[in-house]
Design a protein around this nucleic acid. Structure first.
Lengths: 334, 334
DNA sequence: ATGAAAGCGCTAACAG
DNA sequence: CTGTTAGCGCTTTCAT
């Protein structure tokens, strides 16, 4: 059995409360007793029981993290960022994968809520109402989604899309196709906003191809329709879709970027490895995870949380140019 | 504030102990009182506080899961399996990513140990001694690693490698190169055992190229040495390495599989998407995660854990043939 | 079948 | 500065 605070107290010849103070409010106890307590604790390998502490302080030192699908490489990156930042503050992370099931999401959140100080919901599938209800029960930080009154860290989707369009227009493209993500996706909706504005400003034509699963297969499915638009460049909801699209284009003998240019979003590891390497708008995924933890901790510690909830961060995307984008037409080249 | 057991008791007009019994030992209480308690609990949205329960029962209903690096696509799959199986048994999962740091591993385990009933250590980097020490403090299940006296779920590395060799030999290959993983990797060591035996049995020659990082860059680094061996086929530690190798070969103008055949291990999602698609030994990663949870739960519930610790599962690998393997030489073809 | 009481490990008042 | 007391929310004897 692991050592308790009473074991340490007995060994150090003090009361349990002194041990508690010596360990968590060092300034308040006599230096020599503190040293004695510390020594006893070390000798017994004492680690306070967080659950017991949480019972009385109301703070568990744990946070929850909910993601829709770890198989999408976007999320492990965010998780990694959350992990790293949480560890630095000595908080432990409960992870839940909802398998893209919006209902499971609500259930998991409720089950976890009791054991955590707050939760980070990553690209949640739940409805705005459910999210609001959840935020009522526990402190919540949203990643990649904006809901009134809830703290969030998002990406600058509009800015990222502007960069992509600027790049393509500079290469001579005037007709750009957009392969959208899931119908309900918050970020897909915002990306199209940026795309539309950028196309208008630069005199390019934007053609929406529709909504597809945010997966490799989704990209395969979208490819033929994208080609049929007659566009010379395609921007996809994310890199996974772009890579699926690339595969289908290759199978059809359509050369990228000679016949068609392709731009993705995310910059997952795979994008660098695809052939041709994928031009993409890099989203600082890991950083988003770190910031989400900081935001959550800040809200938890704030005397007036509302002031912080207002200050949400929007992280810039960065255009990474690789081989999948080229001039508008093979024929246009010398 | 969330409802407590006393709130439910008051509303139902019974004592807290009755509520406790009604909810967790339904057979023991009068049917009508049970109904009343249930109704009260539902109305208040009562969820028992697990931390408080754990304090007295000694069981938290939580498990810990430690992985070395979520950026390696192998691990998210295992995590997903663990998640799914844990959720089915209503247990919550603490996740920790150690960033390949063996020392951080030990520290994280100790920090988590107090809050969980047991831990799943996935391909741990820690030394055998550290692992044994950890297993002393808390119940442990190892994934992809074998240590005396600790429950584990492993993959049949030898069998997988035999399948790979049989496939290559059938295609006419007689000289096969092996690109190993990290020097300390348990699975790398076991894969080479299977490779050696299979090569001996089939009269093929096996050439070890050395140890490389289990990453894309590791594969890039290994490519030229693999080519220099004069082998007609290369088997790599994992798919990530194989894909890096593919990239370097392509850059050098070496055609796969015409000039060289390549086989990976794992069957990560990326392998299907690479060009050429990668022949690989599929490891049931997600299943391994599920089994790890089952094993852990079984050990926790067992009156005599040792009987279970003995019965570890070894999951078979499955050869998935794709485009990266072909006949021994371009010249050999008609 | 139910209630009262005790206590899991810890911290926070309150005395001293 | 330190010890004593009480109690977080829950389960589990022990009575009744």
């Amino acid at each position: 059995m692991a050592a308790t605070i009473r074991d340490v107290a007995r060994l150090a010849g003090v009361s349990p409360s002194t041990v508690s103070r010596a360990l968590s409010m060092p300034g308040v106890v006599n230096a020599t007793t503190r040293a004695r307590v510390q020594a006893a604790a070390d000798r017994l390998g004492y680690e306070p029981n967080r659950a017991a502490r949480g019972l009385i302080t109301g703070r568990t030192g744990n946070i929850g993290l909910v993601v829709p699908d770890l198989a999408n490489p976007f999320f492990p990156s965010v998780v990694k960022g959350v992990q790293a930042r949480a560890r630095a503050s000595d908080v432990a992370v409960f992870l839940a994968d909802t398998d893209e099931d919006a209902r499971a999401e609500a259930g998991l959140v409720r089950a976890l809520a009791k054991q955590v100080d707050g939760m980070i919901l990553c690209s949640p599938r739940a409805s705005q109402e459910d999210l609001a209800a959840i935020a009522q029960e526990t402190t919540v930080v949203l990643v990649n989604r904006l809901v009134e009154g809830i703290a969030a860290v998002t990406f600058d989707n509009e800015g990222g899309m502007r960069q992509a369009v600027a790049h393509l227009v500079a290469l001579g493209h005037r007709k750009i196709a957009w392969v959208g993500g899931p119908q309900t996706s918050w970020s897909s909706a915002h990306r199209i906003l940026g795309l539309t504005a950028a196309a208008r400003d630069s005199g390019a034509e934007l053609i929406e191809v529709g909504h597809f699963a945010p997966t490799y297969d989704g990209g395969m499915a979208a490819a033929d329709q994208a080609v049929a638009t007659g566009a010379t460049a395609v921007v996809t909801y994310n890199d996974l879709v772009a890579i699926g699209l690339l595969a289908r284009l290759h199978a059809r003998g359509i050369s990228v970027p000679d016949d068609l240019s392709v731009v993705g979003v995310d910059d997952i590891a795979m994008s660098r490895m695809s052939r041709p390497a994928l031009t993409t708008v890099r989203l600082p995924k890991q950083r988003a995870g770190e910031i989400a933890v900081e935001l959550l901790l800040a809200v938890l510690d704030a005397p007036d949380p509302d002031t912080i909830v207002g200050s949400r961060g929007s992280l810039p995307g960065e255009l990474i140019v690789r081989d999948s984008t080229g001039v508008a037409h093979r024929q246009a080249r010398p």
